[in-house]
Write a protein that binds this DNA or RNA. Sequence first.
DNA 1: CCAATATATCACATAAATTGAATATGTAAG
DNA 2: CTTACATATTCAATTTATGTGATATATTGG
Lengths: 111, 111
Amino acid sequence: MPLPIITKDTNPSELNAVVDKARSASNFLKAISHEGRLMILCHLVSGEKSVTELEDLISARQAAVSQQLSRLRLEGLVIPRRDGKTIYYRLADDKPKRVLEVVYDLFCHDN
Amino acid sequence: MPLPIITKDTNPSELNAVVDKARSASNFLKAISHEGRLMILCHLVSGEKSVTELEDLISARQAAVSQQLSRLRLEGLVIPRRDGKTIYYRLADDKPKRVLEVVYDLFCHDN
DNA sequence: CCAATATATCACATAAATTGAATATGTAAG
DNA sequence: CTTACATATTCAATTTATGTGATATATTGG
């Protein structure tokens, strides 16, 4: 059952902890709720991709993709790796994957 | 593994289907990524609540809570039930719950 | 060093989301 | 019908997010 139950006599520090967690979760969800960023993350589930590859995969311009990756990077969701001129991105941990699995199950199953 | 792999020779109708699903998922995630709405949904997991109860639970004003509920209602995430003067809201299905469970696990476990 | 390629950043314009105050609606009680 | 209470809606102001074009940085090859 998600999140502790909050009542009138939940003490302040406990309440702050809950609000902080809600804010973190909210930021994370905002980061992945953008259509382009969501697609990028989905593509990264199957392995790292270069920026150019992602541009093609989601049919968006270089600057847009770079900014979307920038946001995901700042949010700690992806990690860049340079190899020569190209930069490859991969998922930083399984947080996005865990959520994407559920979302995929809810929105993409059959039909 | 989330989402079908898209390549240069994915046919147009298949591609549209994927983009549509991504848009749905994106809208859903946007709806739940707002801090106030996230808290509301969390509280509804444990059962239906009146608007006034929610106002107290998340310490927000009447108009704000009502607007947040309105958004969730339009997005199909919650369902209102009138009983006299008060209106009780409950989760429309287990979509939000499914996602919240993962988010709770990722952001609220221990510490 | 110079040109070419890959990526990042910036500044701006626009669009979308959010808030707050005021007002409206629906319901029960008298 | 009138009042009080619970909730919803509206509108303007503000904030935040996003895409675009131009420009900057880093790397490789010649």
